[in-house]
């Protein structure tokens, strides 16, 4: 994953200042709209809305587009699949799998759909600190009776934030070990199975050792997962309620259209 994908961009825009819960709700709501949308006109409107939000956030559009790039191949694959597999009026009369007008329409729609979903998600992560997203999710989950399953919303939030914290180190470790094994003459192309073991075993070993150290550090700092507060305690502002109202009106208008 490139460094720039789904990263936070410092800013003080209206979007940055919204409560993460508001933004999470908005992304969920917009995702539903995007998924339900069958017409190009509606899709156009959702794209326009995305551009409006991007403009408000002050995040560069090119930055958000970069988040989509790693999945471009996947999106293109979906597009081609629809283009050739959908039955209908052929664009070019080929004997097998002719591309159809219906396929073109459906493929474009699906590609737009996935692209737009990723872009809304990228906008969320660009305007919200990872810890704030975690915080928001924790607060949304808190009323659920998770304790009966043996975890607390705090545990889940901590797990999420630790994953965000340590994923880059994990990937870095993987790369280091791979390089080390390659330099010792490991041949990935000829014996993939042995090669995978040669990388996975030290990687897992190292990760477990680090995980033990992380646990000790957390325990030493009184972590118990029962009850915590946060440096950034969340508080819904007038701005949040206004934004949610605005979003509600937009969605309603959209669904009725």
């Amino acid at each position: 994953m490139p460094e720039t994908a789904f990263n936070y961009v410092y800013g003080d825009s209206l979007l940055h200042r919204l409560d993460p819960r508001t933004k999470l709700a908005a992304v969920m709501c917009l995702s539903i709209l995007v998924f339900r949308e069958e017409s190009f006109a509606g899709m156009g409107l959702l794209i326009a809305f995305f551009l409006l939000l991007t403009w408000i956030s002050g995040v560069r559009l090119s930055f958000l587009l970069r988040s989509v790039r790693p999945l471009l191949f996947f999106i293109f694959f979906i597009f081609c699949f629809q283009l050739f597999a959908t039955k209908g009026t052929p664009i070019i009369p080929l004997p097998v799998l002719p591309p159809s007008y219906e396929g073109l329409r459906l493929g474009t729609l699906l590609a737009l759909r996935f692209g737009l979903l990723l872009l809304y998600a990228a906008l969320l992560t660009a305007s919200t600190l990872p810890s704030q997203i975690t915080n928001g999710i924790e607060r949304l989950l808190r009323p659920l009776p998770l304790r009966r399953l043996g975890v607390t919303s705090f545990d889940l939030a901590t797990m999420m934030s630790l994953s965000i914290r340590f994923l880059p180190s994990f990937l870095e470790n993987a790369a280091t070990i791979r390089a080390a094994q390659l330099s010792r003459g490991l041949d990935l192309r000829h014996d993939l199975r042995r090669g995978t073991t040669a990388i996975a075993v030290p990687l897992i070993r190292r990760s477990i050792l680090s995980a033990e150290e992380v646990t000790e550090a957390m325990e030493s700092r009184c972590y118990q997962g029962q009850c915590r507060t946060s440096l950034h305690e969340l508080r819904m502002q007038k701005l949040d309620w206004t934004a949610l109202l605005g979003l509600g009106v937009f969605s309603l208008f959209f669904l009725l259209l």
Binding site: P130, S131, S210, E213, A217, M218, S220
Partner: peptide, 13 residues
């Protein structure tokens, strides 16, 4: 406690 490894005891983002 402060431990030896600066990276594994840094738990915040």
């Amino acid at each position: 406690m402060v431990f030896q490894n600066p990276y594994t005891q840094f738990v915040g983002t």
